[in-house]
Structures are given as structure tokens and as C-alpha cells.
Design a protein around this nucleic acid. Structure first.
Lengths: 241, 241
DNA sequence: CCGTTATTATTGTCTATACATAATCAGCCT
DNA sequence: AGGCTGATTATGTATAGACAATAATAACGG
């Protein structure tokens, strides 16, 4: 049982509208009463009503158009909030011992496939290419292949990554403004299988993440998790977004 | 180049604060100036400043505490908006021919493993268990195993699923209020491999989705995609959340 | 020194009002 | 009919002020 807390007025109004929408009483395309009407109905000021509807608009439940009014939005594709943790934080956060090893490191002029991975169309570019293996309680946890754009993060060339792995270090160095994830399944190749101590051909969850700042790609990383031991969890409720 | 549009005042203030946070000038834990101070600094009313900071709080960039002030939030786990489309819409939306086959169907009293899949702890429950295969351009696209809670959707027992597959039908029937996804990689078993026309042991992307309404589980579905032919894409930018 | 109480700073919510902006509508002129 | 114009309507943004809720801090009394 939930406690009957005194909801703020705007939340109350929001709930009331949300209920109509989620219950299907107001189908997509249905016009929500105007702010003026709701003011009369709920006996409060327009600002309060506005706050309620604006919140619904921000949550994507309604679309607002000047002069026309507010309308129940078409059912969107299901969106879900996917949490992708920093690996070091993910492991230490669950009380396991964390360790990492840099398997390979090379500074080079970006090759065509590097440019493709970074999603950068243009020109000559220097990158730092790293291969890292992360352990949780001394068991291989994830295999990481990373490219760092040295045009954006020149300091990466001088960093030894002794204290923190590249991903964690980068997070501390520069904040990202945009990220893109691609998630797929792959059979483990010989090399990855060896490092992760799994059978060749075992299913792996592959997460490719590109991180951007002001349009420029900061880094592109391919994380390969043993499929049997890892899963991503995502949760979503449109009402509380 | 972006056009120099006249930003509303509150957005301007929001940007200014955001810039301090994202640039690292204000590290996590740093105290944001009080609304009163910002009013003086920006020469606007407190409501305007409040709107700006409240938006940042809603985006998770700051945490607000009465009397104490507003503080830059600890760097969250990276959250990403994952779009999971309705399968029928996903296929037809990309111009491919869509078809589905119901491989198996059974109405039964929920077994212990069914209850576990639904995440329902309590009692006797009737479920509709379906196995569906979806095709895109006559090629197997995804294998679906679904349980429908008949206590919530009794109509599912009388539905033939002739016009729409169960997932699409359910979306039309009852709106969900919460969803949970689990994503992992698995090697294809004999049965799934056969239906998807892939090699046994091939890596598959498995998405398990549970959908709730007001606490009760509506449906639990396990979608198995051929790993080589499917991937999930997710994009995120904190500034525009 | 400790516990209680009063003060105060800060955010949370709300009102009433105002003007701006955009889109629609009706009417008018050509 | 076609197009221009102005009125209307609904939302977008902003202001100034008010009171409530909360928690940190200071003042006080034992």
C-alpha cells in the first residue's frame, strides 16, 4: 500500500490527464482540453496547468501546438532507458575486485577502418589504439578494443593508464555530450575467446560505443562480454520519465 | 552552422549552467549558486531561474535540496535511450514484406517457470503461451516466445491473432505503464536455429521484455534475433534529454 | 557540554497578470 | 476564386509576489 501523500497540485493534474491517456479514454490524436478549460475545471492558475501539460509534453505523451491545442501523441516506438556503467565502477560497485591489463597499445595514423569506426569522414588523423582486458575477481570480465581520437584528446598519447583504464580516464578527462551505442551478438573469435577464457564460438554480447563532443568523435570502443555471464538491464516507465 | 536563434531566457540560463558542469569547471558535488544569486546575476525573476535549474534536475545533472542548495550530481551511469520497435512496424517501416506464423499455442495454468518469467510471485494464474516466428521478406527475422497473463488480458484467450501478431495486438489492446528489458547473447539451440535457419550455436541477441500495468505483469516475451543480422541502436545526449 | 528552541536561508509550489508568438479563421477586397 | 488582412485563440515565456516546507545554523538554558 502506498501512503496517501499530498501531491502538489500540478502533479495531481498531470496524473489526471495521464490516466485518461494511458487508460485509452483519450486515444492518440484526441485533443486535450485547453489550458483555459483546465483552469476552470481544476480551479487553479494557468501556470499550474501549464506546468502539468508541459511535463506531459516533455515526456512525449502529448504534443502541443500553438493556437491548435494539445493533442495526445501517437504511440511512440517503445523507448527504454538503458544504463551502461563505467566498467571499473560497475565491478567495484558490486563489491568485486577490479583489475585490468593493457594487452596492446599503438599510436598510429588512422587507417580507413579506424576512420570508419570513429565515424569520421575527413582526413588524416592520429589515433591511439588500445586493447584492454578487464577482470572481476580475477576472472576475465570484458574485452575492450578502443580508439582514441588524438586530435580531441592529445593528452591520451602521454598517458600511461597506470591508475585508471582508458575508459575511466577519458570520463574524468573530458565530458561527453553525445553517445551512440550499437548492441549485437557475435560468436567469439579465437583471440577474444582466449582472453575471455571461453569456448571459441561462444555467444558474446558486443557493445560498440561512440562518444562525441561537439560533433567530433572522442573515442570508439568495442566491448565484448561473455554472453553467458553478462546482460544489460533496461527499465522504463513513461509516467515517471 | 546553426542559426543564431533567440533562445528563451530560461534556456539560456540552463545552457550557461550546463556548460559549467559539462566542461568540468563545476565538478560533482560543487554547489550551484542559489536561485537568489542567479536572479541577481542574470537579472530575471526567480521563476525563470527556477525553471532552468528544475530542468537540469529533471535531466539528472544537478540534485536539489531545500535549504542546502543545488549541487552538481555525481556522474551517473551512462544512460541511453534504447528504442525497441514493434516488430511488425519495424519490418514494414523499412519497406520489407512482413509475415508471421504461430508455431505453437497453449492455454494453461501457469507453471513455476512461467511465474518466474512473469515475475509474479503469487498464486495460481492462467496464461496463454505462444511461440511465433516473424519473417521479413520471407526470411526468418526473429523467434518469439510469449506468455500473456490472462488475469490482466482475458480477451487474449478468445483472440485468434489472425490479423496482427500477439505483440502488436497487445499494444493495441492495453497501454503499458512500465517495461523492463534484459539483453544478452546466447548460442542458438537446435530448435531456434532450425526456425531461424541459422547454424546451431550461432550467436543470437536475446531480448527479454516484461511489460507491466499498474504493477501487474501483462506479458513476458523472449525475442531471439540472429546475431549477425540484427542489432540494437541507442543514442543519447544529456543536453537535450 | 548537551539538548532544545528560534532564526534564517533555500527550495517548492502557487497565483495573477502581462505580453509575445504562432496558427487558424472569417471577412474583405480585388 | 484567390489572396490579403486583421481578429481570435491557445500556447510560450516572463514578472513580482506570496506562503509553505525543510534543514542548517545560531542562540539559549540547563
Amino acid at each position: 500500500m502506498s501512503i496517501a501523500e499530498p501531491l502538489p497540485r500540478y502533479a495531481e493534474i498531470r496524473r489526471a490527464l495521464e490516466e485518461k491517456i494511458l487508460s485509452g479514454e483519450w486515444p492518440p490524436g484526441h485533443r486535450v482540453p485547453s489550458e483555459h478549460d483546465l483552469v476552470a475545471q481544476f480551479g487553479c492558475s494557468r501556470m499550474t496547468v501549464n506546468k502539468a501539460i508541459s511535463a506531459l509534453a516533455a515526456a512525449g505523451l502529448v504534443v502541443r501546438r500553438r493556437r491548435s491545442g494539445s493533442f495526445v501523441a501517437a504511440p511512440k516506438s517503445q523507448e527504454t532507458v538503458l544504463e551502461v556503467h563505467d566498467i571499473k565502477a560497475e565491478i567495484t560497485g558490486s563489491g568485486r575486485a577490479y583489475r585490468y591489463v593493457i594487452l596492446d597499445r599503438e599510436r598510429r595514423r588512422a587507417r580507413p577502418e579506424d576512420l570508419a569506426r570513429l565515424g569520421a569522414a575527413r582526413g588524416p588523423l592520429d589515433v591511439e589504439a588500445l586493447t584492454v582486458l578487464h577482470f572481476a575477481d580475477e576472472r576475465p570480465f570484458v574485452h575492450e578494443r578502443r580508439l582514441i581520437n588524438l586530435a580531441v584528446v592529445p593528452a591520451a598519447a602521454r598517458e600511461a593508464f597506470a591508475a585508471s583504464p582508458p575508459g575511466t580516464w577519458l570520463l574524468e578527462q573530458i565530458p561527453w555530450t553525445e553517445a551512440e551505442h550499437i548492441i549485437r551478438a557475435e560468436n567469439a573469435g579465437a583471440d577474444v575467446a582466449h582472453h575471455l577464457a571461453i569456448a571459441r564460438g561462444a555467444a558474446c554480447l558486443v557493445v560498440v560505443r561512440r562518444t562525441f563532443q561537439a560533433g567530433a568523435t572522442i573515442t570508439a570502443v568495442t566491448l565484448t562480454y561473455p554472453g553467458e555471464r553478462h546482460q544489460l538491464v533496461a527499465r522504463f516507465s513513461p509516467a515517471t520519465r
